[in-house]
Write a protein that binds this DNA or RNA. Structure first.
Lengths: 138, 138
DNA sequence: TTTGTTTTGCAACTATGTTGCAAACGATTA
DNA sequence: TAATCGTTTGCAACATAGTTGCAAAACAAA
């Protein structure tokens, strides 16, 4: 249980610290995406704001979590699937934001269709965000 | 030329003011999407920050411009096409952000493919943002 | 347990965005 | 074109979000 978290950190050549363990735990328990402010609240004032920022940044760089662009311009972070953490490539699934309850879902099995870019444009990352009403609010 | 801008404002029951004219002009000249900070710089310190925020907000409400969610969590605004400004529906074209020069393009002729959502989810708006290298930086 | 490296927390700072209110401006009508 | 009324602006003050440098603390390795 705890070992999975420690292994994940070790695999990414990161020191195993309280804040990193705690933040990873939060993501695993949350299931969905979290905002910086969520983490700040959920971690119970234990860690400095700066530490959380830096931890999230590190996780993104290592491919442990990824960011999600949202319509209301808040950054969200979500755990990457195992296949993702291997390299520096990104998830290619669709994200869904519920306008009612505000929850963000990773629709892991809904893949982003390939888009044809005009000549001269090179794709590196593609994000598809759908907003509307989720299954709980419908 | 200038009349088009004034007409657009009048059609939306907005007073014709310097800041609104200037900001609309900037959008027309830019061709692509602009961030709040772009506008602040380009308008040459003439307008208060607050005025720009409020103007953009008003334009979004009236359907004159729309927001674009981006991966790096900056809000971008872009002019809506004529068909768009009629109602409260949104563009369904792809947006492209260049990692090098930072320019955002509205790829008007690249449409967002329909995505199949899981049962219970209802779509209201879909945004597709591609980042990479644009034709000028390639 | 010692040593060298990484990470944390603090302080101070910049950037971004919001609100209330009085003054200025724009539209309308006489 | 001047008076009036509603809208918009700028200011001040505030709230939130995010960054940086640096010394102290924690971690990993030997």
């Amino acid at each position: 249980m705890q070992n999975r978290i420690a292994d994940l950190l070790k695999k990414n050549q990161l020191s195993i610290t309280d804040s990193r363990k705690k933040i990873l735990e939060l993501f695993q328990n949350a299931g969905g995406a979290l905002a910086h402010s969520d983490i700040e609240k959920m971690s119970g004032e234990h860690f400095d704001r700066v530490t959380i920022y830096r931890t999230l940044q590190t996780f993104v760089e290592k491919g442990i979590i990824h960011t999600i662009p949202t319509v209301d311009n808040s950054v969200l972070y979500a755990l990457c699937k195992d296949e993702c953490s291997a390299g520096h490539h990104h998830d290619n699934h669709v994200h869904f934001i519920c306008d009612d309850c505000g929850t963000t879902y990773c629709l892991d099995h809904v893949l982003i269709p390939k888009v044809e870019l005009p000549l001269g444009f090179t794709e590196k990352q593609t994000d598809l965000v759908v907003s509307g009403t989720c299954k709980n609010c419908n």
